[in-house]
């Protein structure tokens, strides 16, 4: 599958609204992924996402500039909600999107039967971390691309790439899920709402910030996620990024608040024939999208033109550090020692 050596790595950027989509396109994204304004996608946040009209405007903007738009329909419908997912697939097809990114078998099955010409990508929420799983989705639904969960080391990514019947997209930058996507129920355990069921993780309405004599406390549905000393930065209380007690130690027992940043892995990802790099952050601002897209466009171009001489520039890392969670970045699971 190393046919992509001649193909440039595609830059896939997030957009939670039209200004973000335009910013991504203006800064050089090859494709932008968006969601509709309901629980059919895994960023179902208040005030975020697209209705049919803004989606059409976004698609028009992108297509006029030779770029593509993908729509994420990557949550798992329960029987009572099926109509919303069915309608969303139909609407995506009518809008002329360049791909639907889906995870649930019923959604993939419907899309491939009803709209056989609509390209399908398997969402990261589909939890396909090995090539046998990828083959399953390819054989049954004709998926053209898979987004890998953020759990594989670099050699494992290469192994999957070498045996995959479809193109591989990997996460390059942004918020880092520690758990296998599509297989994490921590959020519903505490709040009743999870990415799979509701398209949210650690939802905003369950979050409380409280100044107390012990410091600033962040809570999720009443559960203490972290406590910050005066002057200590306090990030969004994502459940897995709090400080907890195990035995007699209090520490980031699951993961520190940090963003994934794989800028330094670009030559290797390019060499192994990865098709696309995905930037996380549909919930982030147009300024974030603009900044991150700008840096990654420059990096991918530099890597493509001079792979042997490529090294991430200090200014790129500085820019990305500014918009990273806790101003920290990590190579995540790509780097075996993280695991």
């Amino acid at each position: 599958m190393n046919n992509a050596l001649s193909k440039p790595l595609e830059l896939v950027c997030p957009a939670g609204n039209l200004p973000s989509l335009k910013a991504a396109i203006d800064q050089g994204a090859d494709a932008v992924y968006i969601g509709f304004r309901d629980d059919t996608n895994a960023r179902h946040f208040p005030g975020l996402n697209f209705d049919a009209k803004t989606a059409a405007q976004g698609i028009q903007y992108a297509h006029a500039r030779g770029r593509r738009v993908f729509i994420a329909l990557n949550t798992f419908p329960q029987p009572s909600g099926w109509e919303r997912w069915r309608t969303a697939v139909d609407r995506a097809a009518e809008l002329g999107v360049d791909a639907v990114i889906a995870a649930d078998i019923s959604v993939l099955d419907y899309a491939c039967r009803q709209h056989p010409r609509l390209p399908l990508h398997l969402s990261v929420q589909g939890s396909a971390a090995n090539y046998e799983a990828i083959r399953f989705y390819h054989e049954h639904f004709g998926i053209r691309r898979v987004v890998l969960p953020r759990v594989l080391s670099l050699p494992q990514v290469r192994h999957v790439q070498d045996h995959s019947p479809v193109a591989i997209e990997v996460f390059g930058f942004g918020g880092l899920c520690i758990m296998v996507e599509g297989r994490c129920l921590l959020s519903s355990y505490v709040t009743g709402e999870s990415p799979n069921m509701c398209g949210v993780c650690s939802p905003a309405q369950a979050v409380r910030w409280e100044e107390t004599p012990h410091g600033l406390e962040t809570r999720l549905n009443g559960l203490l996620i972290d406590r910050h000393a005066p002057g200590e930065p306090a990030g969004y209380p994502t459940l897995c990024k709090g400080r907890f007690a195990v035995g007699d130690q209090v520490y980031y027992a699951i993961e520190e608040p940090a963003s994934l940043n794989t800028l330094e892995l670009l030559p290797e990802l390019h060499d192994m024939g990865i098709a696309a790099i995905k930037i996380e952050g549909r919930q982030r601002s147009p300024a974030y999208v603009s900044q991150v897209t700008h840096v990654w466009r420059a990096a991918i171009d530099a890597c493509r033109h001079h792979p042997a001489r490529y090294a991430p520039k200090a200014e790129w890392q500085r820019e990305l550090g500014k918009v990273s969670e806790g101003h920290q970045t990590t190579l995540g699971a790509y780097h075996r020692t993280w695991q």
Binding site: F76, P77, W82, D104, S127
Partner: peptide, 25 residues
């Protein structure tokens, strides 16, 4: 895992465990 589903499909009856996401009929 869906990899296991692929290997079992059409060959022998199998059980779908907690690792398989079945949210609807």
């Amino acid at each position: 895992d869906m990899g296991a589903v692929r290997l079992l499909s059409g060959k022998t009856p199998f059980v779908l465990g907690t690792g398989i996401n079945i949210y609807n009929d």
